[in-house]
Design a binder for these strands. Structure first.
Lengths: 200, 200
DNA sequence: GCTAAAGTACAACGATCGTTGTAACTACGC
DNA sequence: GCGTAGTTACAACGATCGTTGTACTTTAGC
């Protein structure tokens, strides 16, 4: 296996290590071992550690964003019961697809390390990942507003609010994974707050 | 100045460096220089780097939580117009008091590095900081619910939702600081969403 | 099968860093 | 004023790590 796949395996291994240890803690040798690859190969592909990191966050953001766009498309194209569909969408969104834990851990690393990443790389990452998803979500919400189901002044901010209420506050401090029941509970209450608020 | 203040100066300098660089990147010598202190003094006070970090996050969380509890007390004790008071409270909350930027950068560092911090330290930090604030906020919200102003099943989750809608999504990717107008806009729309939701 | 490209193993470098020991120095309590 | 405890400057250590060079081996394409 000379040419094929090596690059992808390096990206996968680097994602694991960067997500777990962060940029500064992560060591090139550990990444190489995780990817079952020589450290020299790693340098041949990505130049240096910073280049590898940029490639990893870009690839991870792009891949997860694509998956989330598909989920948006799937659940929010033809809605019958808005609240039920939003709940189903939120549950699907938050339920761990493979690598979701690693991805969101990497997001936390990027958030923490933003000051040490070139601005252009951060911008590209945000554009390919969170912003793309937020924009797509905003588009759907705007449609619902046009249909008279919602009242929205700023769709982009509404999409942000939805994301926060649905996926917010799971920095996963505790080691254990989140149970499906917790996800259902969090999404249900989040969607309810998004739609109806807390006023009596 | 032998005994006095040294410890506090170390904590302040370490807060600055840890918040900016993160635990792994931060170097003891840089922290010592930032605090105008010998690195040996630092070890005499805190044992090692991990001990210093634990002291820093604990102190920062405790101090900021106390300030935020005071803001809650100040704005939400006697409310006349709930929405207006919540907006005023949110603006006061989010408007940078000194060190607020450093504190929230440190929070991001803790979120990213949670896997490398002893569980007990993370628990103590969360208890002294975010959870204490959330609990106090939940208490006020529960009072509003008892007064018939809000409809709340789970006050703690409602407090979480409020925090997310008000202070969420400012990972400060861009270098520039947030303008007061942006804060006002974000808080106003956040409070509106919290109270009324987006349903028509 | 041959050749060029890609991958590997291995050693080595310079740099950074956490941590400790030590001896000199300084401030504060009595 | 003196002594004790805190502070400093300084050197040194072992360890880790990013990165490079090189010689060797493997793989893929023709």
């Amino acid at each position: 296996m000379a040419r094929a796949g090596k690059r992808q395996e390096v990206l996968a291994g680097a994602l694991t290590v960067f997500a777990r240890d962060g940029y500064a803690r992560a060591s090139i040798d550990v990444i190489a071992a995780e990817a079952c690859v020589s450290s020299r190969t790693l340098y041949n592909h990505f130049g240096d550690k910073a280049g590898l990191f940029r490639a990893v966050i870009q690839e991870s953001a792009t891949r997860v964003a694509a998956a989330q766009l598909a989920i948006i498309e799937q659940h929010l194209s033809h809605v019958t019961d808005l609240e039920a569909d939003l709940v189903a969408f939120g549950i699907h969104w938050r339920t761990p697809m493979p690598d979701y834990a690693e991805h969101s851990a990497l997001v936390r690393q990027v958030n923490a390390e933003a000051g040490h990443i070139p601005q252009e790389a951060v911008d590209a990452w945000q554009e390919a990942g969170p912003l793309a998803v937020r924009r797509a979500l905003a588009e759907r919400l705007a449609v619902f507003a046009a249909d008279g189901l919602l009242r929205i002044d700023d769709p982009l901010r509404a999409a942000l609010h939805f994301s926060l209420l649905i996926s917010g506050a799971n920095p996963s401090y505790r080691g254990g994974p989140v149970t499906p029941d917790e996800i259902t509970e969090a999404v249900t209450t989040g969607v309810h707050a998004f739609l109806h608020g807390y006023t009596r």
